[in-house]
Design a protein around this nucleic acid. Structure first.
Lengths: 243, 243
DNA sequence: AGACTTTTAAATGTCAGACAAATAAAATCT
DNA sequence: AGATTTTATTTGTCTGACATTTAAAAGTCT
């Protein structure tokens, strides 16, 4: 691990990159302890605060964890799917909110990805996952449910569908896409009528999964996508001329 | 923005979270300048190094950028798709390498996601993207190409396919999945025979896209997935008894 | 007055040294 | 032997200082 002091970049960024490279290349392995901050500052010929800034950068990416005390230090972290989820959700959420991604584009991506899971989920869904979906549908039918709570339940429903594919890599990729949409979905005001329609489609999706009918799940997801986009259009229209 | 000094977590982590929340909630908007480090240390009642560690955490997630000089400071960063790509690739790569994800699981996820793009790509692909794919196929047919270079070209081919869907959100999600697979793919030794097979399938995919035949693209991707998994199985078998 | 140069001030980047707090291992005592 | 105390190590935090970069302000010359 070496840094080039002539480079224009900040020293802490360079050091972070050097350690990051060492982790990615396998030079440092999971649970291995990094040298102490004092040793690192010796090694890189920089001060301890600079080393610390570098380590905090890595900690922010869940690449390392730190522990205080006698045999403490910084350890290479095994990135869990949990860690990856939350990072992806943060990034995706901001990406959508900051880049004027149209509702249609986000919606298209979300359902395209979700449909990618559908056939696998039809094959592999457990009865547990099916029960979760039914429970969320029940919750969605409760009167007096806020729009936010309705959306949150919607996310949980789709999350169960995705998890049904029994492929953690797929689940991880999709968690970001589905959850990042939530702020956009929250902008839609769900009338009693539109909730009924969505719940009906959710029921049909659950039925199709119960029968392990992949084609039907796919068809119903297409319907749901079309309906969702229509709702969003209505909201946009209403905003344009609020009568 | 407030922090709770009684909390067990590090101050710099708490401060980073407080600012992160402010950005996500929209309290701080894109390109807005944060208070200077001195002002922040006043505001949070901590020292400047602590504030700096917090800011470096945020910088590592591309949430802020900093600029030196008179009217410099930390600014809320508009997360670009580029930024999001590279973060996703880093995370996905480590996630796969550190969690003993089987080749089959990763491969299944990758092709499921890619097939999600196929029908959109068949509708929308530009002639430019088609030309890129043809060029990569040509490169793959060069004799004397290293396995690494073959895989890199493979990634470029599939990247063009995905970009054909003309949906940046989809492209962003898939970049991680496809590129993170590369280290796993690099473990496969491609014989001249297997390269021929893959190139033939690539050609058929390109043909199908040229004819805008979504069903055929999908079918060929399924074939390619099966063939890829078979190759990986052979490699695993060979490792078990290296004769 | 206008264009160029110099100065200044503000901000981040870096450093040195210190103390606090946590923690595990070693030493001590019962 | 077991419980307790001490000690050493390491991260977390603070203070204060200086270096470097940069834009704006002030000054100077034509």
């Amino acid at each position: 691990m070496k840094i080039d002091p002539r480079k224009p970049a900040d020293l802490s960024a360079q050091i972070a990159q050097a350690i990051r490279d060492a982790i990615i290349s396998g030079e440092l392995i999971v649970d291995e302890r990094l040298p102490s901050e004092a040793e690192l500052s010796d090694q890189f010929q920089v001060s301890r605060p600079t080393v610390r800034e570098a380590l905090k950068r890595l900690a922010a990416q869940s690449l390392i964890r730190t522990q205080r005390g006698a045999s403490g230090g910084a350890f290479v972290n095994r990135i869990s799917f949990e860690d990856a989820y939350s990072q992806q959700i943060t990034t995706s959420t901001l990406l959508l909110s900051m880049n004027a991604v149209s509702f249609d584009t986000a919606c298209e991506a979300r359902f395209a990805l979700e449909r990618a899971c559908a056939s696998l989920s039809a094959q592999r869904r457990t009865s547990d996952q099916l029960a979760t979906m039914r429970a969320e549908i029940f919750r969605q039918a409760q009167p007096g449910l806020s729009d936010e709570a309705f959306c949150a339940s919607d996310v949980a429903f789709h999350r169960a569908l995705v998890d049904g594919a029994d492929n953690p890599v797929l689940s991880y990729q999709l968690a970001g896409a589905v959850e990042a949409m939530q702020p956009l979905m929250n902008m839609i005001t769900f009338t009693a009528r539109s909730r009924e329609e969505i719940i009906a489609l959710h029921n049909q999706i659950a039925d199709a999964l119960e029968q392990r009918d992949a084609a039907k799940v796919d068809a119903k997801l297409v319907e749901l996508e079309e309906y969702t986009r229509k709702l969003a259009q209505d909201v946009a229209q209403q905003h344009r001329k609020p009568a």
